[in-house]
């Protein structure tokens, strides 16, 4: 089980949690999308807000807080939080790097990308650097196979990675100033072919 899927030990768990004023307003806005007696529908966005407020991880106090706010049994919120891998149940580094190693990415060289990360950050999968800047995770298919290999950093996908581009991403992240734009790192527009179009050429004729 990877590091973010198991709840942090009790000494890392904060005793209390509540939304900041801004986040509370955000939560209320989210709640307004659902009928009064179907509040529990908002559990996913509210857990996300809570996670963002709490340095990208969800303590049990936060899950309890959201469950109570939505008037749902706490266990139902635990179920949601433990089911979706995007919720981190234990502290993670400032930059969460998740690299896909499923077949298409593996064929397109994700192993090299992984090696670069492991070497540069000096950590293995499921570990956090000692300065608490990076956490590295191995994940299954991210659904961007056309642009393999893919890394998911923060809220963005970085695609068509090479050793060099991964290297420079880490450089920039270390400096705390990521200038590279997300998406394809070799200039492709979305998932369109590299260079000239070579199919559907008679389109529009």
């Amino acid at each position: 089980m990877t590091v973010n899927r198991k709840p942090a030990s009790s000494e890392h768990q904060p005793k209390e949690f509540s939304f900041t004023k801004d986040n509370y307003e955000l939560a209320i806005k989210e709640l307004s999308k659902y009928p009064e007696n179907r509040k529990a529908s908002a559990v996913i966005p509210l857990l996300d807000i809570a996670q963002r407020q709490n340095s990208n991880w969800l303590p049990i106090a936060a899950i309890n807080y959201v469950a109570d706010l939505l008037e749902m049994p706490r266990i139902r919120a635990y179920e949601v939080a433990t089911f979706y891998t995007m919720y981190n149940l234990a502290p993670v580094g400032e930059n969460l790097i998740q690299i896909c190693t499923t077949t298409p990415c593996a064929l397109r060289g994700s192993k090299d990308i992984v090696d670069v990360c492991k070497k540069r950050l000096n950590i293995n999968f499921g570990e956090t650097t000692s300065d608490n800047k990076f956490t590295l995770l191995e994940v299954e298919c991210l659904g961007a196979c056309v642009n393999a290999p893919v890394a998911w950093i923060g809220d963005e996908y970085y695609e068509d990675l090479s050793k060099e581009s991964m290297d420079s991403i880490i450089d920039q992240l270390k400096k705390g100033d990521l200038k590279l734009s997300p998406g394809s790192q070799i200039g492709r527009n979305g998932s369109m072919p590299m260079g000239q179009r070579n199919s559907l050429l008679d389109e529009g004729k």
């Binding site: 089980m1 049994p73 266990i75 179920e79 433990t82 089911f83």
Partner: peptide
């Protein structure tokens, strides 16, 4: 008493009270 649930997913799914 909603105290039991299925936590985790896939291979890691467990019937549990979580806390």
């Amino acid at each position: 008493v909603s105290e039991l649930g299925a936590t985790g997913r896939g291979e890691e799914m467990e019937i549990d009270t979580f806390i």
